[in-house]
Nucleic acid binder design. Structure first.
Lengths: 200, 200, 200, 200
DNA sequence: GATGAATGAGATTTCATTCAT
DNA sequence: AATGAATGAAATCTCATTCAT
């Protein structure tokens, strides 16, 4: 009979442990290709322990995605503070986003694995994603008020600009390996500058 | 004992029959939620018959996606012919795309179900998608030559513009039910006009 | 709704349980005619449980075959100890083998079901079979050294003697129902005695 | 619409055509791994045509096996005619058998693919196999009458000798690639000579 | 809290055989 | 006689999730 280890860790520690294991496993085998068994094996905990912390495989993937989005929000919000003009802040927004995506290409990939109903919630606007969107929207509102941006529906504009940015990052990091990220990043910058910044 | 029907249909008819059944089933139950059995039952053919025409569930979904892309290419190419100016052709491109997506929201949804490696090929640039992209790129090249568009790398610009358009349609028809499609369509039009068309 | 039993048994117990069930099912329906479902139904466990212990139908059949071979090795080695002369040990070897085969005709049948590549490994010299062969070879080597056996390549002689014995047991128990086993057994005894034992 | 060829060949020609195709396919993919589709494709005939000539996959394999056995019978009977003594005839019998097996290792392999009930009839004593056995038995009977062979039940002796020979050929050509065939052949010769030939 | 053996529904795919043409 | 599209039963194996200990 084998002696069972029964390391009782604090909840946050366990979550982190599982999250890290999941990230590694998803990176190596993809979402569909990974099993809970892979994750717990990597984490060194028992099968059942997983369910004490996450309700499902999807739940942990969502959690990983939220982490990424939070990191992106934080980076973006921080970055924009320092910009003087709208155009400058726009550039900073874009480069901060690309920066985070570049550092977390694996999570970025994971975050866009599917929109089927079984994966639907991965795309559901999470509160993290919402806060990113709000930051962009606020940037736009301010710029419109300051006369630095063409007047437009700031919500739609923010969603489209965010979508464009996202698409560029997907092309760069999900379908590509990052080798085109510079060209895509400056392409987005140019398009949004011309498209949004009011010419004097 | 059931009498076995053994209708021998021509290959294109069978393919169409299966494609139609698959489209219906995917629409009702989603991709992951659908089974080959659902599809053959809907089509009224035997299980094995499916495999005479398509190698797997994914194969038929890809085929459906290609159909959509072809329809979109055709519509877009036709539409752009009539536009006088670059701006006009751009608008027509957008409205033709939205038009096709609106008519085929279910396929559009299907076409964007996943980027996991098991679904990877759904996103692989199919020849149909490539021809759409080429059409946009040619439009841009011509406009740059004519001085109607800001000079820029036409390939990157085309990929980003296509991505933006795609994203808007996804928001409209995949995550939404089409109720915002008008706002999104004009938002894309505005952004691309300001962003790409050279102001006089 | 059925109440689910969840008896957790020790690994060896489960293996034995599945092995016993498989033996019974194979005996009744033959190897090809048996399904994993038959086996788990007989064992009273769930479908998935099977795969916790054996990787495939072939794997459990191989395991059953190895059991038989082990039993045969043991019986043979034990039996030969008591023989005084080479000829006597030879007779004991034969009768011990026939004895085990007689008791396990069903397994014997199973052990010789096929040499097709999908079944190839059934015939692969398992370590159990190898130890049987080694025992025979050692017997021959000793007899040659003692001058009780004609000098010959002991390896080839052992393989052929073992093959002959095997063949006789197949005729007796696989193709026949054992009714000729006595005649075959003594036939093998005579042939090997005359063929191998050095006449004085 | 494709023009269908409808070559009407004489029955024996078709059989030969299918037999040749089956032999090739079985050789390449093994029995279980081969499909009727493989065979008809190789033969260049339609799926249904197969069933006009053979009732099943097994039927054509049996037919192939019978061919081999017939060839072996013929070779053996011919070879024995020329032998002067029993011992000589015995040697010729063995070398003729090994010769045929060597030339037809693929069929030999096929002939021993399985003894499961689904394959049972492959092992059923076919009339061809029976005639081989009879030839051996007659050789033995004659040798006993002439006092050249130890008296023994000629039927059992023939079955065992045949089995031993068969086993040696299986070791040589089914499990091995023929590289040991010489050693095995002479091993069988020695064993049967010492075991059966009456010493003067 | 932790364990991990057990569960069992279920989906894909194959392929020998049939039979309308 | 020949064709070959259609049939459909059947069997393996996976894996997220549960729950008795």
């Amino acid at each position: 009979m084998v002696t069972r280890r029964r390391r009782t860790e604090s909840e946050p520690v366990r979550r982190e442990q599982l999250l890290g294991a999941a990230r590694k496993v998803f990176k190596e085998k993809g979402y569909d290709g990974s099993t809970i068994t892979d994750i717990v094996r990597e984490a060194g905990v028992a099968q059942g322990t997983f369910y004490l912390y996450y309700a499902s495989k999807r739940a942990i993937a969502v959690s990983l995605r939220d982490d990424l989005m939070k990191r992106m929000s934080v980076a973006v919000e921080g970055s924009m503070k320092s910009g003087k003009s709208f155009e400058e802040r726009l550039k900073k927004l874009i480069s901060a986003s690309f920066g985070v995506a570049r550092q977390n290409a694996d999570l970025y990939r994971l975050a866009f694995i599917g929109a089927d109903e079984t994966h639907q919630e991965m795309h559901t606007e999470s509160s993290e994603h919402a806060s990113f969107l709000t930051a962009v929207m606020n940037l736009f509102k301010g710029a419109i008020d300051d006369g630095e941006m063409e007047s437009a529906d700031p919500e739609i504009a923010a969603r489209l600009a965010t979508g464009l940015l996202q698409h560029a990052m997907i092309e760069a990091f999900v379908f590509g390996e990052g080798e085109e990220s510079d060209r895509l990043e400056s392409g987005v910058g140019d398009l949004l500058s011309s498209g949004l910044v009011r010419s004097v």
